[in-house]
Design a protein around this nucleic acid. Structure first.
Length: 262
DNA sequence: CCTAAGGCTTAGG
DNA sequence: CCCTAAGCCTTAG
């Protein structure tokens, strides 16, 4: 910190770096220091209703749909050791992200996450709007194929839901799965993003979890944008990825069923 | 530091 | 089809 470096200690301070450091803190704080320490909260109208959002100087750090600012502050403090101050009006980029569901380019402050959690969220962030992937897909992608349940736990702790679209992660058996804001909200969000949940359900009822085209020999998750273009005459459903592969299909490079590496 | 319990799951019986 | 327990990261104790 420039304050500490530029501080000219009194002779008596010279031997003790701690005293010198404390002294530096006592001299004038530079403008902006407060915002490097404190977070600011704002309220934004999101697709699921009003949410509270905390931002640091690095970006958006926390988003929750609490009842009021006190409740939000309490949940923020139970997780972050940093003061929370009122932040005025929300940045346009944030408002846009929460209204459109497109968070590209928005800065997030994800410091403090465990490496596993960070990996899970990074994978979740790659799921395009309008598509869904299973929890097991994330587990595969991050190289922990059996940590499926831990993936759910990590997503449940997503500090910035909506911005990192954990609602696009659903169960392998075709059910929606749990969600921080509740299952109904998850379903509403997905329908809003034009995920055809009715089709997903219909297929699941028939034990179809993968679909392929016999012209391209490519197999996809049903919600994959490429799967939605398969001509009915060439459409084939599969229960497992293995069955599709045995039939000569290879995983789609876009939705990467099974979590295949790039 | 260690153990236990529990969570936005899933495969297998 | 329902039920169980494996499996694994976190956190509470």
């Amino acid at each position: 910190m420039s304050t500490v470096e530029s501080y000219d200690p009194e002779p008596s301070d010279r031997r003790d770096p701690l005293i010198a450091g404390l002294g530096a803190l006592a001299t004038g704080a530079p403008a902006g220091l407060l915002d490097r320490v404190a977070a600011r909260w704002v309220r934004v109208d999101a697709a699921i209703g009003d949410v509270y959002v905390a931002m640091t100087d690095q970006g958006v750090a926390y988003l929750r749909a609490e009842q009021d600012e006190d409740e939000f502050a309490a949940s923020f403090r139970s997780r972050f050791a940093r003061p929370l101050l009122p932040g005025g009006s929300p940045p346009p980029a944030l408002v846009r992200a929460l209204r459109t569901g497109r968070a590209e380019g928005l800065h997030l402050d994800l410091r403090g996450l465990r490496p596993f959690e960070a990996a899970v969220l990074r994978a979740a962030a790659t799921i395009p709007r309008g598509e869904i992937r299973p929890y097991a897909w994330i587990a595969e992608r991050i190289g922990r194929p059996k940590a499926v349940r831990a993936v759910g736990t990590a997503l449940g702790r997503n500090p910035v839901p909506l911005l990192i679209p954990c609602h696009r992660v659903t169960r392998s058996d075709g059910l929606i799965g749990q969600y921080v804001f509740g299952m109904p909200a998850k379903e509403r969000l997905l329908r809003m993003e034009h995920v055809n949940l009715d089709e997903v359900g219909t297929l699941a009822a028939k034990n179809v979890y993968f679909v392929g085209s016999d012209t391209t020999g490519v197999v996809c998750y049903p919600s994959c944008r490429d799967a939605r273009r398969i001509t009915p005459a060439h459409w084939h459903g599969f229960r497992t990825l293995g069955q599709a592969e045995r039939a000569g299909y290879r995983p789609c490079r876009h939705c990467r069923p099974g979590g295949a590496a790039p």
